[in-house]
Amino acid sequence: MFAQVLFSGFALGSIYGLVALGFAVVFKATQVFNFAQGALAVCGAYFAVTAISILGLPFPLAILAMLAASALLGVIIHMTLIQPLSGRSMLAIIMVTIALSIVIRAVIEIIYGPQGRVLSTPLPTGVFIVGDLRMPKLHLTAAATSWVCMAAFGAFFRFTRVGLLMRATADRHEAAMAAGVNVNLMNRLAWAIGSVLAGIGGLFLGQLQIVSTELETIGLLALPAVVIGGLQSIPGAIVGGLLVGMIEQFSSSYISPKSTDIAIYGFLLLILLFRPWGLLGDQETGRV
């Protein structure tokens, strides 16, 4: 039982880490605490449903279309909502993201109806059984893809010039501007990346479960994940996501399914009380 719970905590936690990474990229770049991150994951899942089930595109093409649509959505949100509000209070922008998530949810229900949809893809199904441990291939694929994405974006930020300039912009806007960096373009890119990461998370969540607007609640686990991991920390987001997945699965299996929210947010409270900058955050700048 322990190994089984550890496995599913790891698999789901990897997806949460991916969505949380998207959140952290946006937060670092634009200081926006994006309550619509869960809704962006839902959008990714519905983009995939549209491309695969409705338009019937071949799978690789459908994935490309879904990624492009997610990126475009991030760019549009930045251009129409975030950039015009830059310089306004954090509260105003938070309210905008909350409103955005409600609007996204309503629009999806109008377009696709309240009924959940099933996303079927050619990804391998079935299960590896090792002793008592059952490892669904879909969970393995989801976890592996999440880690590949996280590693790829980590390398992108660490080793490329664009990544360097994005880090620089996130560090200090006016210095980046003076150095000739198109700050709006960098921020737009950050929103595109944040939305794409959420979208990939949504794609897997939708496939493991059902594509419905309720997926938003899972996507929103990115919020406790980044706070636990450390708001300003990219590795913190990943570790936070993993921890949230573990806490969720362990509390639900060993205490009761009703206890997961208490366990996750109880742990969050402990972090806020004793280490408000998060596990891997920076004590100086990362205090919540």
Binding site: Q4, R134, L205, L208, I210, E214, S252
Partner: peptide, 20 residues
């Protein structure tokens, strides 16, 4: 018996219980 929320999106723990 095991329960889930009406808006549940992840029932892994419930299925773990069935497994067990």
């Amino acid at each position: 018996s095991t329960t889930m929320k009406i808006a549940a999106v992840d029932v892994t723990p419930q299925v773990q219980q069935i497994l067990a």
